[in-house]
Design a protein around this nucleic acid. Structure first.
Length: 476
RNA sequence: CGGGGCGUAGCGCAGCCCGGUAGCGCAUCUGCUUUGGGAGCAGAGGGUCGUAGGUUCAAAUCCUAUCGCCCCGACCA
């Protein structure tokens, strides 16, 4: 049925690449590890941007733009930051035919250049908080890449905020985490766990990293967004101080946070099936496609006239398209839109003209229904809402049915290599047992939930006392 | 960086072992017939065979070098 798409059960990795190719989301670029985001993929990104941007602005943030090039010396100002990022930086050493006096780093993230400017912009507590976001591209020299999930260049948003107190910075870190969770769940229909990362997994230069973590269909984890509390690390590195209400000079408190085009990878691996892409209605660039069917020119004009009448009020209701191309046949169109993940298809032909109905098909269930033409708008709306909810419910059920509490190390190893999933295990909080866990299981601690009540137990690796469980999984 | 695979028409591939007119499917173009789940027939266009050397009367094919991409591992959003 679905030509050109490997079945998920045969080869999940290949399926993922096939879905992207068939839905025309992206292509490999001439340069290793880079991708061209095609119109279909970019349209999804634009939908994501629109919703996130709205949420950021509603919470008081404004957009700005900082440059692509960063002097190498800036990157070096924060010790942990440079250690974390230097190995994966692209450097510009020549320009205008001459060797540069100081190499320029192509930004892997913008904390350093942002804070070099904040130094000038922040003098007083009255300048705080400073809540800036930017939409940009960044480059990280990755060893191994996968379309959307890990590319050498990717698009993202990065928020950089400055605050007068530690408490405010922590509030901001969690506020953004909440926005990310809401976006993932309400718009992407992708349920996420939230929590804090271990020291090992923490952003280079942060005092704490929070993340949203989703389970993909193959039960592996995907870190879908991060929100960092940077403490005063960057303020100290760039000497950003402000005068407080009481007149004292203090270092500014900072956060940074980001989500990237990786979200598109997460979207694909949350909902799509063996017939191709499935996009939740709220993010679908195209929510409804109407396929008219005809044999003769007379039939065509009658059908088209009817469709124009039925969809007359749709401009402000749905993102829709009437596919009246006459060089493709209906079956071809059905398949084409299915691969591209359009949530609702409506078929309308001579038979429907007679019966006063249309055929409505939901992409996620494949269910075909005959709907009265009088109710077409309401029924379409209902189906879109139902599909959005159903995608979320299915994804949540997958996670819940594949999250387990395990207390025996051998059992954990076996199950990680078997059916997989999220495993809630006790951990003593020490770096060396975390390293051992990763070395021996290929899985990592994804997230810790600090709000969870304490529970006495034994570290799954060492048997030492542990106060709480953490989530362990194989990750992308 | 280690392991594996692949570079031949827009895409997917065959041809290479055994050197001798560069092929097939899909897509594209034209015409007719078609149109409710990937249409049929007829015709047409499209390639310096990744690149550079070498061997030879003759190289997609043999030899050498080199570049690139994909997949699987170690590192990362």
């Amino acid at each position: 049925m679905a030509k050109g798409i490997t079945k998920r059960s045969e080869d999940y990795s290949q399926w993922y690449l096939d879905v992207i190719a068939q839905a025309k989301l992206a292509d490999h670029a001439p340069v290793r590890g880079c991708m061209v985001i095609r119109p279909n993929g970019y349209a999804i990104w634009e939908r994501m941007q629109a919703e996130l941007d709205r949420m950021f602005k509603e919470s008081g943030h404004v957009n700005a733009y900082f440059p692509l090039f960063i002097p190498e010396s800036y990157l070096k100002k924060e010790a942990e930051h440079v250690e974390g990022f230097a190995p994966e930086c692209a450097m510009v050493t020549h320009g205008g035919g001459k060797k540069l006096e100081e190499p320029l780093v192509v930004r892997p993230t913008s904390e350093t250049v942002v804070w070099s400017m904040y130094k000038d912009w922040i003098q007083s507590y009255r300048d705080l908080p400073l809540l800036i976001n930017q939409w940009a591209n960044v480059v990280r020299w990755e060893m191994r890449t996968r379309l959307f999930l890990r590319t050498m260049e990717f698009l993202w948003q990065e928020g950089h905020t400055a605050h007068a107190t530690a408490e405010e910075a922590q509030e901001e870190t969690l506020r953004i985490l909440g926005i990310y969770k809401r976006f993932a769940e309400e718009f992407m229909a992708m349920p996420v766990l939230t929590g804090v990362k271990t020291e090992k997994e923490r952003f280079a230069g942060a005092i704490n990293t929070y993340a949203i973590e989703a389970m993909m269909q193959d039960k592996r984890a995907l870190q879908a967004g991060t929100s960092h509390n940077l403490g005063q690390n960057f303020a100290k590195a760039f000497e950003v101080m402000f005068q407080s209400e009481s007149g004292s000079r203090e270092y500014v408190w900072a956060t940074s946070w980001g989500v990237s085009t990786r979200l598109i990878g997460g979207l694909i691996m949350s909902h799509s099936d063996d017939n191709g892409l499935v996009v939740p209605p709220k993010l679908a660039p195209l929510q409804v496609v109407v396929v008219p069917i005809w044999k003769s020119d007379d039939e065509k004009s009658a059908v088209m006239q009817k469709i124009d009448g039925l969809t007359a009020s749709w401009k402000d209701k749905f993102r829709y398209k009437i596919d009246d191309r006459d060089n493709y046949r209906p079956g071809w169109k059905f398949n084409e839109w299915e691969k591209q993940g359009v949530p609702i298809r409506i078929e309308m032909g001579p038979k429907d003209l007679e019966s006063g109905e249309v055929v409505l098909v939901r992409r996620d269930t494949g269910e075909k229904e005959r709907i009265s033409q009088d109710r077409i708008t309401e029924e379409t709306e209902t189906r879109l809402t139902a599909m959005q909810q159903s995608l979320f419910d299915t994804a949540l059920a997958l996670r819940e049915n594949n999250t387990f509490e395990v207390d025996d190390y051998d059992e954990l190893k076996e199950r990680l290599n078997g059916e997989g999933g999220f495993f809630r295990v006790h951990w003593n909080g020490k770096r060396d047992s975390e390293d051992r866990l990763q070395a021996e299981t290929k899985a990592t601690i994804r997230v810790m939930n600090p709000d969870e009540p304490e529970e006495a137990g034994k570290c799954i690796v060492t048997g030492e006392p542990s106060k709480r469980r953490v989530v362990v999984a194989k990750a992308y």
